[in-house]
Simulated scan of single mutants.
Amino acid sequence: MSEKEAEAPAVDAAELAAWQREGRAFTVLDVRNRDEFEAWHVDAAEAVQIAHQQFIAARAKGTTEELIPDGPEPILVVCGVGEASAEVADQLRETGVDARNLAGGMDAWAREYEAVELLFSGGTLLQYQRPSSGCLGYLLVSGDEAAVIDPLRAFADRYAEDAAAHGATIQYAIDTHVHADHVSGVRAVAAATGARVTLPAGASERGVGFEPDRLLADGETLSVGDAVLETIELPGHTPEGVGFRIADEEHGDVLLAGDTLFLDAVARPDLAVEGGAVEAMARALHGSLSKLLNLPDGTRVAPGHVASATSADGAGRYVATVGDLRERHGLLSLREDEFVERVTGSLPERPANDEQIIRINSGTETVDDETALDLELGPNNCAAR
């Protein structure tokens, strides 16, 4: 039996994430039902859906070759938990195709969460990456203190473990804004560690139904060991959105930009407001981006989201300098009216269950952990291009 005819090798979620970061060519074959695929699937340049039942019928008829996707090999076969996809991958390998199975399926993909270290002379700065949704979060460690920025509830235990591994305890659990695409972990982290829940000052005007320990307004600072986070008001994605600048003379300051500025897109302005207020938010976003473009060229932008098509740097980090973004990011060169027209005219579908997720993050609705995870599955759709 040839190598391709042998049992299909398994690709785990971490390896798939590496494929995406490296920009590797491959084809996703999703054998779930069509509605499941359309709601959420592994994002790849080539992704097709052919239901498992069609492969069962093709095996009986001897027509498996007719179902082979046209895209580049390897073909990564995907289902919900990795069982039906393993059968299909084996079936495809019998035809000589380089087919592989995503171990654990979409369930494992949803739970994949990785950390890479950003250059930072004042301690340790980790960038957390959730490749299934593109969500990025951060852990800042300086001395024996730590802060987590934009944590996810599904991974609340992870942050405390990583802080402890660096000899620190989490002092602050911070959100840059009221998120619409994922369930925030600030209160879960606080409950587990005693960290202080910290939100932008404008969050109170969004109707937050709990009392944060700290509200940060424009220009206010937060000390974490010897590191200092400087709050920068950045309305546009939401009215209350902020970013945090962390000084670093050796490697260049870091700007944790939240959902305001991405490496190849900008925030969408319509998730917190409706009607005519969307245009006003888009104008506010243009002003916030102009503020960021006035930062020194060497300032490193670390965004709150990344698209699967965005390539990481050689160390697996999603970060770019203000100078680089100014040169390569077409939306940043538009005049205000052009920018507003472009951004408001190119809005994708809203994130899945966004209104309910906002209520949960605002503290006006409560759900259990499993429900919270199910609600946020799917593309984040927080960007405009």
Rank of each mutant, 00 (worst) to 15 (best):
residue 190 A to G: 11
residue 130 R to C: 07
residue 165 A to V: 01
residue 143 G to W: 00
residue 143 G to A: 00
residue 203 A to M: 10
residue 173 A to G: 11
residue 106 M to T: 03
residue 183 V to H: 09
residue 84 A to E: 05
residue 210 F to P: 10
residue 152 L to T: 11
residue 88 V to G: 08
residue 123 G to W: 12
residue 123 G to T: 07
residue 129 Q to N: 13
residue 211 E to I: 09
residue 99 A to G: 10
residue 210 F to N: 06
residue 168 A to G: 02
residue 155 F to G: 10
residue 139 L to C: 12
residue 137 G to K: 09
residue 141 V to E: 02
residue 174 I to T: 15
residue 148 V to H: 01
residue 211 E to D: 09
residue 171 Q to M: 14
residue 218 D to M: 12
residue 181 D to R: 12
residue 140 L to P: 01
residue 124 T to V: 13
residue 201 A to T: 00
residue 129 Q to W: 09
residue 88 V to R: 09
residue 140 L to Y: 02
residue 141 V to Q: 00
residue 83 E to V: 12
residue 154 A to Y: 05
residue 116 V to S: 01
residue 97 V to N: 06
residue 84 A to F: 07
residue 139 L to R: 07
residue 115 A to E: 06
residue 148 V to Q: 02
residue 162 D to F: 04
residue 126 L to K: 06
residue 133 S to R: 01
residue 90 D to T: 05
residue 85 S to N: 10
residue 125 L to Y: 11
residue 166 H to Y: 01
residue 124 T to M: 03
residue 86 A to I: 04
residue 142 S to C: 06
residue 191 A to Y: 08
residue 137 G to T: 12
residue 142 S to K: 09
residue 162 D to E: 07
residue 116 V to L: 05
residue 200 P to A: 08
residue 112 E to L: 08
residue 116 V to E: 00
residue 111 R to A: 15
residue 175 D to G: 04
residue 165 A to R: 00
residue 175 D to R: 03
residue 88 V to Q: 08
residue 165 A to N: 06
residue 157 D to M: 13
residue 169 T to N: 02
residue 114 E to L: 13
residue 166 H to R: 09
residue 185 G to C: 05
residue 176 T to I: 09
residue 205 E to V: 11
residue 154 A to P: 06
residue 158 R to S: 09
residue 99 A to E: 13
residue 200 P to K: 00
residue 125 L to D: 03
residue 183 V to G: 02
residue 186 V to E: 05
residue 167 G to I: 04
residue 209 G to T: 14
residue 192 A to C: 11
residue 206 R to M: 15
residue 197 V to N: 10
residue 192 A to H: 08
residue 214 R to S: 04
residue 145 E to D: 10
residue 186 V to M: 07
residue 158 R to W: 02
residue 90 D to Y: 07
residue 199 L to I: 15
residue 119 L to A: 15
residue 188 A to M: 06
residue 140 L to A: 00
residue 210 F to W: 00
residue 156 A to G: 02
residue 177 H to S: 08
residue 152 L to N: 12
residue 127 Q to F: 14
residue 156 A to Y: 07
residue 156 A to K: 06
residue 196 R to C: 15
residue 203 A to G: 03
residue 184 S to R: 02
residue 181 D to S: 15
residue 95 T to L: 15
residue 214 R to K: 10
residue 110 A to G: 08
